[in-house]
Structure formats: structure tokens, C-alpha cells
Design a protein around this nucleic acid. Structure first.
Lengths: 195, 195
DNA sequence: CCTATTTTGGACCATTCGGTCCATTACTCC
DNA sequence: GGAGTAATGGACCGAATGGTCCAAAATAGG
């Protein structure tokens, strides 16, 4: 270890705590105080380790998309079929409504909604993240195609965007307070649309 | 007219200006200063006429849903078929991307996203509004059913929620910067899913 | 014309915001 | 154990926040 007083907190853990706060409350509605309380560190440590609220937010966005993409990819890799992965991914929205972060929505879509066109850096991070999610869906759809559960003529690119739109839309509905069974009925229609 | 100095601004116009600001910037990111500038009135007039930022926001939410529901209803009434109404409503998202408020999203979904479960009053106004939109979709679907462009067995309630989810999702995508042709390709899939 | 009534402009306010600074503390390396 | 280095706690900061107050202005009715 290099010289100097040792850090008293886990940087990764603090980042994840910050991510959860931004995820549930948004950027503007989250004050520095909220952040410090939830991350469990002092102002000095905060600024020394993360630079500023805006910088931390960017790091959270990146962490979120890394986490999401990684989870989706490994879920796809472990799924019995591409179709299976798509179904369980969507159903996760309905199943999660009772859990802690289950009604938090999607941090990327939340951010796109909050910022609109206002901040170029945020916009580009968000659309990169949404693109990655879309890519995983496309991979799953292509796999479903080779597995025969999708016609060869299907436009997997557009279908992937359709799925991303509905995943985001449903997470938004969950955030707005929709009942799990209402969400499930929509998922049924979405899945049927792929056939 | 009753006694007293006459008001120098149009209350309805000011309300609509405020609505547009909240619509594009959200609640937290909109400062009183922004509001006053865009509404064109002084602080005293503002507080005298609208009470507070929070009260004004509620009025804007209500005005938005009245306006939206009314526009959708008259659009449905004037449409050749129920199916036609649904198609043009969705295509409006793609067509609007170039216009002034075309990438602002849906104020109700934006608000649901920004507030989450934080404010009970806001939540209830938002879900009432979303319910009204869903109802118009259901009416259109029921009409499409009688017109023969939808099977009699179709669950119009769930399909209405599906359409509301996609309308919100697509407006969100537009807000995130999606290209109109990408939006159009998703709309094609959504419409095909109804058949 | 005078009074009652309402709106307007702007001074004023406490609080909160994100952020800086620095003395103190706790370590490593020599 | 002393020197160098990095993290911590907390005092401090200017600016912006949403909101109040009141004197001046502009009307209607008597």
C-alpha cells in the first residue's frame, strides 16, 4: 500500500450506494446531504474521492450500464433459449414490484426523462447504455431465430428496439404504481408480438 | 367586473406557459425564476395567482391531462376508424420529433419518473391521467372490434394498457433522442401486435 | 372625488444548495 | 522515530433557492 492515511470506506460500495440514491430519487432531487448520508462519508472524503456531484452521477450511470449489460449478457448465456431469456427478462419487471428497487424503474430511462436534451455528456452516456441493452436483445432475438422460435424474415434490429421500448415503458409503469398483474398482461402481448 | 386593480396577464396563458416549462425541464430543475420569465409575471402576481410552485405544478398536471384527454377524444371522434386513430396517435410521436415540444415526452410519464413514490398527491393525479389515456385507447379498440379490424376475443383492456405503455415508451425514446425512422419501425410492430 | 379592493414591483428573508479550505489524524517508508 | 503523504472532520463560503411583505398603483362603486 502507498503512504498516507488509509481510506475508511469501500469506494465500490460507496459508488453503489450513490447509484441507488440517484436511481430512486433522480439527480436534481438528490442533495449532497442525501448522498453523504447514504454513502456514509464526509464531505471532504466525498469530494476527494468523486470530484463533484455531477462527476459522481456520470460514474453511477456508467456503473449502472456495466452492471445491467453484464447481468443481461450472463442471463442470456445461461438461458435455455433466446426466447426464454426475453420472457424472463420482461417478467422480472412484474416479479420485482415487491422488492426494494423493484419500482425504481431503469436508471437510464429515468435519466433520459429527467435531462431531456439538456446535458450533452449525460445524453451520450445514456444512449450508449440504451444501445447496449438493445444489443443484448438483438443477440437474444438472433439466437431465437436460429432456434426456430422466430421466422427467418424477422427484423431483429427493430424488434430489439421494440423490446427495449417496452422494457423501459413497463419499468416506468411499475414506477408509476402499476399492479404486477397489469404488467403481466402487457408482457403477454409483447411476447405474442414477436411470433 | 369587481373592484380593484385589473390583472395585467391572462391566467390561462400563464398556466400554459408554466406547463410547457415543467414539461420540458421537469419539476425540480425548473426554478421560480424560469417560471416567472416564461410566464411573464412578477413574483407577487405569481404567488397571488397560483399559491406556490407545488400548487402550480398540480394545476399544470391537471391542465395537461384535460388537454390530452380532450385532444385524444376529439381525434377519435373525428377518425375514420378506431384503427386509424390508434395508428395516427402513435405516428404522431414520430412526426413530432422535429417540432417544438416533439421531444418533450409525456408530462404524466415524465412526472411519474421524476417523483416515483415520493409524493402522494402527484402520484394520484398522474395515475388518474394515465387512466384517462388508457380509457380512450380502450374505446378506440372497442370501436375497432365492432368495425371488424380486431377479433372479438381481443382483451381490449390489456391492449389499451399495452398501447399506453408503448405511447409512453416511445415518447421517452423520442426524448432520449431516437431517430423518427427507428420510432416508426417500432410503431409497425406495435400495430401488427393488435391484429 | 373618495374609499374599498385588488394587483403589481421590488425589497427582504431564512434556508439550502454545491463546493472549498485547512488543521488534524493515521498511515508508510526510510 | 522522523519525514512525507494521503484521508478525515468540520468550519466556512457565495450563490441560488422558494417564499413573504408592504408600499405604490390602478381600477370600480358610491
Amino acid at each position: 500500500m502507498s503512504a498516507g492515511r488509509p481510506r475508511e470506506f469501500d469506494q465500490q460500495q460507496a459508488l453503489e450506494a450513490a447509484m441507488r440514491v440517484f436511481w430512486t430519487r433522480g439527480y436534481e432531487a438528490t442533495s449532497l446531504e442525501d448522498l453523504l448520508a447514504e454513502m456514509g462519508l464526509s464531505k471532504s472524503s466525498f469530494y476527494q474521492a468523486f470530484g463533484s456531484k455531477a462527476e459522481l452521477f456520470q460514474k453511477c450511470l456508467e456503473h449502472y450500464q456495466d452492471m445491467s449489460a453484464q447481468m443481461m449478457q450472463s442471463s442470456l448465456a445461461g438461458a435455455a433459449t433466446g426466447w426464454d431469456f426475453i420472457r424472463t427478462t420482461l417478467e422480472g419487471v412484474a416479479d420485482g414490484t415487491g422488492k426494494k428497487m423493484g419500482r425504481a424503474g431503469c436508471l437510464l430511462m429515468n435519466t433520459a426523462t429527467e435531462f431531456g436534451q439538456r446535458d450533452a455528456a449525460v445524453i451520450s452516456t445514456v444512449s450508449a447504455g440504451l444501445g447496449r441493452i438493445q444489443e443484448v436483445f438483438k443477440a437474444a432475438l438472433d439466437r431465437a431465430k436460429t432456434e426456430g422460435s422466430l421466422t427467418a424474415a424477422a427484423d431483429t434490429q427493430s424488434l430489439a428496439l421494440f423490446l427495449a421500448t417496452n422494457l423501459g415503458g413497463l419499468k416506468g409503469m411499475a414506477r408509476a404504481g402499476a399492479a404486477p398483474q397489469a404488467i403481466r398482461s402487457v408482457i403477454g402481448i409483447v411476447l405474442a408480438a414477436l411470433k
